[in-house]
């Protein structure tokens, strides 16, 4: 979809939201619609200000990295990938090293008081055992 089509589609959505606002008796529904309108205005801003092609999404960036998942990490090597100064953010769980650089739950390469660049096997197993989390993370290697 080119920029013009994308902008037109967004404007149609904004119009539909405004019509919906007139017929919504409930405050919460109205707030939800206003919030959605706010998001659409930001979308328009992006469509208008990005040059040519759209920037890659966070997910696309993660997949596009030249990831080789056979790399071997020592504890010291892993500690360099702490997410600081533009470095990627990696964490190890059960001997596998995962990339959390663009994972939403890892704002500023930290997560519930834990920092990237560490082996977090014990912490992961005490909080997320049995949850389908690791399958969604890109693998970058193994711990030695």
């Amino acid at each position: 979809m080119n920029r013009r089509d994308e902008a037109n589609r967004t404007i149609c959505e904004i119009n539909a939201c405004i019509n919906l606002l007139y017929s919504s008796p409930c405050d919460e529904t109205r707030n939800n619609i206003l919030n959605y309108l706010g998001c659409k205005v930001y979308d328009l801003y992006l469509i208008n200000n990005l040059d040519g092609t759209l920037l890659p999404t966070a997910a696309m960036t993660a997949n596009a990295l030249p990831l080789s998942n056979s790399r071997q990490f020592t504890k010291e090597e892993l500690s360099a990938f702490n997410g600081k100064n533009g470095n990627p953010a990696y964490v190890a769980v059960n001997g596998t090293v995962y990339d959390v650089t663009n994972n939403a739950a890892w704002g500023a390469a930290t997560h519930f008081g834990l920092s990237a660049g560490n082996d977090l096997t014990a912490q992961f197993n005490s909080c997320h055992a049995g949850q389908p989390i690791l399958e969604k993370l890109p693998i970058v290697g193994k711990m030695i």
Partner: peptide
């Protein structure tokens, strides 16, 4: 439901407070 969600999805991040992008 963040109003700046589209910035996150496109990988546009604020570098300092006051930047109008995702503060991830």
């Amino acid at each position: 439901r963040c109003e700046r969600r589209s910035f996150f999805d496109k990988g546009i991040f604020a570098k300092k407070l006051g930047d109008g992008a995702c503060m991830f």
